[in-house]
Amino acid sequence: MTRRPLGQLEAEVLAALAAADGPVSTAELRSRLAGAPAYTTVNTILFRLHDKRLVTRVRAGRHYLYRLAVDEARLVADRMHSHLRFASDPAGVLSQFVRTLSPQEETTLREILAEQPGDHG
């Protein structure tokens, strides 16, 4: 089994919570993640995300049920912008990012840029 960096697992947990119809338990969430991470690992990630106020939790018997507490799109966009802001070559980063988009992602990006005010080329 290949280990993912904690940041990647946090992102996967947040995405799984965003896709959930309601609050989910650690065990339910674990079943939605690729690679079957250990229950304790998922639980640790959830506790960290709760401490960061990215998820909320409610007690359900002896366990907690978790729900996303932030807008996933805003969270991911903020992370992307933060990484871009600290890059020594932001244009190079954006160029590399665009080259790795799927055709559908590229179409979506073009549509979004077309909707924005200003000249985008």
Rank of each mutant, 00 (worst) to 15 (best):
A18D: 08
Q116T: 01
A27T: 05
I112C: 13
Y64I: 04
Y64Q: 04
A114M: 10
A16I: 14
L9Q: 10
L65D: 03
I112N: 09
V76I: 15
E28G: 02
F47Y: 07
P23L: 06
R57K: 13
E115D: 15
E111I: 10
T108I: 14
R79W: 02
R3V: 14
R48D: 07
V42S: 02
D119R: 00
T40I: 09
D78I: 15
M1L: 11
Y64K: 12
A60V: 08
L14V: 07
L75Y: 08
L109K: 06
I45K: 01
A36M: 15
V58N: 00
L75G: 00
R99I: 02
I112Q: 14
P103L: 12
K52F: 06
E111F: 06
E105R: 15
H63K: 11
V13H: 05
T40E: 12
R110A: 12
R74H: 05
Q116L: 13
D21N: 15
A77W: 05
R62T: 03
S95Y: 03
L29Q: 11
R59L: 01
D78S: 15
H50D: 05
R32E: 15
R53S: 02
D51Q: 14
K52G: 04
H120I: 01
T108A: 15
V24Y: 03
L94A: 14
T41P: 10
D89E: 13
S25Y: 02
R67D: 05
E12R: 00
P103E: 04
V76Q: 08
L68E: 07
G7F: 00
L101M: 12
E111V: 09
D71V: 15
V42M: 01
P5H: 14
L75I: 02
S102E: 08
E105P: 03
G61V: 04
H83P: 01
P37F: 04
I112S: 10
P5V: 14
D51K: 14
G118S: 11
F97T: 15
A15V: 15
E115L: 07
L101Y: 06
L109I: 09
H83N: 06
A38Y: 06
R53K: 03
N43Q: 05
Q116S: 01
A87F: 01
A36W: 09
L14D: 08
